[in-house]
């Protein structure tokens, strides 16, 4: 059964056709379970959504084919651009802060200066294990302007807590929740990459008299550049698709969140409260295209820089 693994072309005698065919087919057989699910839960729904986006299902006139009209009207819809402006402003500030924290913690854990490393590793990772909906609900409670945890503490101390749910503070408050949730996740990825840095390189730096700080800055971090790019791309995609946290905050701050605070929230509202499934499908494709373009540009920019540096 495993002959295709060990066989090399030089030692293999001419084989039957069946054998060769089987050899070619086997990898695809292994891929089959993945492919079936991939097609069923990704490709087919995508095609259905694409089809949906070309029609307009109306209450009075039934379904009408409208071509690209849904796309034009969504691109012309200020609600989409408002939401996009929020997530861009959010991402520009939150993603670097979160990744800096994650990197700092990963280096700290990897450096070996901490005792109880395992405990801290789990503790930092724990927020990611809390479902984001629950996490957002807990934070929403703590942010409460009259009876929330922070305002109660501030009240006891005789000061006024900032209004975490006001229009000005909302992005900061959301950013805090997302940072709390995903720092640990990113830390684990970066920590794993740091652990994979060859020991001989690190030892060489010690022998050359580098301080731990210098080793981290000059040796370890540059060597995990790819992992950093990966976490950045994940974070960018996550930011553009921000949904759970603002959806949870909508109940406590409806005047700030409204129905289109982020593009995904707007897509959800269109589909599930406004009965505009077709517009929602079009918006989803527009958002998907934006995510793809932004991620691609980011990867291109970082690989250029890496190439330039090398």
């Amino acid at each position: 059964m495993f002959d295709f693994v060990t066989a090399t072309p030089t030692q293999a005698p001419p084989r039957h056709r069946g054998h060769r065919l089987r050899r070619r087919l086997v990898p695809y057989l292994f891929l089959l379970p993945f492919m079936v699910l991939f097609v069923l839960v990704l490709i087919v729904p995508l095609l259905l959504a694409l089809d949906l986006s070309l029609y307009r299902d109306t209450l009075a006139r039934g379904q009408i084919f409208v071509g690209l009209a849904n796309y034009f009207s969504i691109l012309d819809d200020s609600s989409l651009w408002d939401g996009l402006a929020h997530v861009v402003a959010f991402g520009v500030v939150q993603v670097p802060i979160m990744l800096a924290f994650a990197l700092g913690l990963a280096v700290l854990l990897d450096s070996g200066v901490l005792w109880g490393r395992r405990l801290f590793r789990i503790a930092f990772f724990l927020p990611y294990a809390v479902p984001s909906v629950i996490g957002a609900l807990i934070w929403a409670y703590m942010y409460g302007p009259s009876f929330g945890l922070f305002s109660s503490i501030a009240h006891a101390a005789g000061v006024r807590a900032p209004d975490f749910l006001s229009g000005r503070m909302m992005l900061v408050s959301l950013g805090n929740v997302v940072t709390w949730e995903y720092t640990g996740y990113n830390m684990i990825i970066l920590y794993a990459a740091l652990q994979a840095v060859p020991r001989d390189v690190v030892e060489a730096s010690w022998i050359c008299g580098a301080t731990p700080w210098q080793t981290a800055l000059r040796i370890r971090i540059p060597l995990i550049g790819q992992a950093l790019v990966l976490t950045a791309v994940f974070s960018i995609i996550g930011t553009l698709q921000l949904f759970n946290e603002p959806e949870m905050f909508k109940a406590i701050a409806p005047d700030v969140i409204g129905d289109h605070y982020t593009p995904n929230l707007y897509a959800y509202t269109l589909a599930f409260t406004d009965q505009q499934v077709n517009a929602s499908a079009a918006l989803s494709f527009v958002l998907g295209a934006i995510v793809a373009v932004v991620s691609y540009i980011f990867m291109l920019a970082t690989s250029r820089r890496a190439a330039g540096a090398g």
Binding site: A140, Y141, G144, S146, F147, A251
Partner: peptide, 11 residues
């Protein structure tokens, strides 16, 4: 204030 949320119940 928005209704049917923790703050509102507490109020």
């Amino acid at each position: 204030k928005p209704g049917f949320v923790t703050e509102w119940y507490e109020a």
